[in-house]
Amino acid sequence: MGEQISETMDDTGVRPVTYRLYIRVPCRVAIDPGRLGRHVLVRGWYVYTGSARRNMAARLRHHLAGNDTRRWHIDWLLGAGLGQVMHIRLDTESECTVNGRIEGRVVIPRFGATDCRRRCGSHLLWLGTRRPRAVPRDPGRRRTHSAVAAVERSGRPA
């Protein structure tokens, strides 16, 4: 099992390659992520699993900015301001391995997984309406921009 990266790379020099965005969607929303078609998401908590072998900090900054540039499926949710990233977890294992351990419901087939070789079904999962245990109860302990800083400190080129 991969080691959870808390703030920076570990003593062995292993750097994160996978990230999980814990997203809160406050109300029912409709999104149209490209070729996947129009879908309605109910309010609640979602987790999106992605990876970046290079430029992870830039990728995370892009997701947190919620800008209008639509490059990845998740941009249709975050860029439109329909969901808010509440916490980020970093991992050293592949995105499919990490995604496969998450207990959640596929809401948009192939979302973030059109190139997935393991047939994950989706890299966006609905977790329910209650705050997931992976998200710290205390908002001061949740990581968003600090996760970007952790990746930058790990020595990974940004």
Rank of each mutant, 00 (worst) to 15 (best):
M1N: 06
S6W: 01
S6C: 03
E7H: 11
E7G: 12
T8L: 07
T8Q: 07
M9H: 08
D10N: 14
D10I: 00
D11A: 13
T12C: 11
G13H: 07
G13V: 02
V14F: 05
T18C: 10
Y19L: 10
Y19H: 11
R20Q: 11
R24L: 15
R24M: 15
V25K: 02
C27D: 10
R28S: 14
R28A: 14
A30E: 15
I31W: 01
P33G: 04
P33N: 14
P33C: 10
P33L: 03
G34S: 13
R35I: 00
R35V: 00
R35K: 11
L36I: 00
L36Q: 14
V40P: 07
V40S: 14
V42R: 12
R43E: 12
G44Y: 03
W45G: 01
Y46V: 13
T49Y: 05
T49L: 07
S51W: 02
A52R: 06
A52Q: 11
R53V: 11
R54A: 13
M56I: 07
M56C: 11
A57K: 13
A58Q: 15
A58S: 15
R59K: 15
R59M: 14
H63M: 03
L64K: 10
L64V: 11
A65D: 15
G66W: 07
N67W: 15
N67C: 14
T69A: 06
R70I: 01
R71G: 04
D75K: 10
W76M: 02
L77V: 04
G81T: 09
G81A: 11
M86E: 14
H87E: 12
R89N: 13
D91V: 00
D91C: 05
D91S: 13
S94P: 02
E95F: 02
E95G: 05
C96Y: 05
T97E: 08
V98I: 09
R101H: 14
E103M: 08
E103N: 13
R105G: 11
R105W: 14
I108C: 06
I108Y: 04
P109Y: 10
R110D: 10
F111Q: 05
F111L: 07
G112A: 12
G112D: 12
A113K: 03
A113M: 13
A113R: 05
D115H: 15
C116Q: 04
R118I: 04
R119Q: 15
C120A: 09
S122C: 08
H123N: 08
H123D: 08
H123K: 09
L124M: 12
W126K: 05
T129I: 09
R130L: 05
P132R: 08
R133F: 01
R133G: 06
P136C: 09
P136T: 05
P136E: 06
P136Y: 00
R137L: 11
P139M: 14
P139W: 03
R142F: 00
T144I: 07
T144A: 10
H145Y: 06
A150Q: 06
V151E: 07
E152F: 00
E152K: 09
R153S: 15
R153L: 15
S154Q: 10
S154G: 06
S154H: 05
R156V: 09
R156N: 12
A158I: 00
